[in-house]
Computed example of a mutant assay.
Amino acid sequence: MRMIDRLREYVEHETPTGATDALNAFADRLLHRYGDLGGTARRVAAATGDHVVADFPGRGPRAEEAPLLFLGHHDTVWPIGRLEQMPWREQDGVIHGPGVFDMKGGLVVLETALEQVADHDHRPVRVIVTADEEVGSPSARDLVTAESAGVVAALGLEPPHPNGDVKTSRRGSSRLRIEVTGREAHAALDPGRGVSAIDELVDQLIVVRALVARYGDVLCNVGTITGGGRTNVVPGQAAAELGFRFVDPETERAVLDAVTGLQPVRRDAVLTVSVLSNRPAWQPSAAVDELLVQVAEAGRSVGQEVGGKAASGAADTNLTGWLGVPTLDGFGPRGKGAHASHEQVIAASLAERADLVAAIIRTI
Rank of each mutant, 00 (worst) to 15 (best):
V208Q: 08
N278E: 14
E179C: 06
E111Q: 14
E297I: 07
G299Y: 09
V125I: 10
A187N: 02
L291S: 08
G39D: 11
G39L: 08
R214W: 13
Q304A: 15
V151R: 00
P124G: 04
A359C: 03
L69T: 00
E9Q: 11
P235T: 03
D257L: 02
P162I: 03
K336P: 11
I361W: 02
G164S: 03
L31I: 12
E305N: 13
V117Q: 07
A358M: 14
A351Y: 02
R170Q: 03
A351H: 14
L114P: 10
A140R: 06
D132Y: 12
A146C: 11
E115R: 03
R353D: 12
A315Y: 09
S349N: 02
A63T: 10
E84Y: 11
R253V: 07
G38T: 11
V207G: 06
A314M: 13
A354T: 02
L328M: 05
I198H: 07
L291A: 04
L189M: 08
P159Q: 03
A25F: 01
V273Q: 10
G337Q: 09
V151H: 00
V288S: 07
G194S: 05
Q344P: 06
R334A: 02
L242C: 12
V273G: 03
P333H: 09
L189D: 12
M86Q: 12
A197Q: 12
V195M: 10
A66F: 06
G58N: 06
A210F: 12
A254S: 14
R43M: 08
A254M: 05
S277A: 15
D289I: 00
D190I: 00
P67A: 04
A25L: 12
G97R: 02
G216R: 14
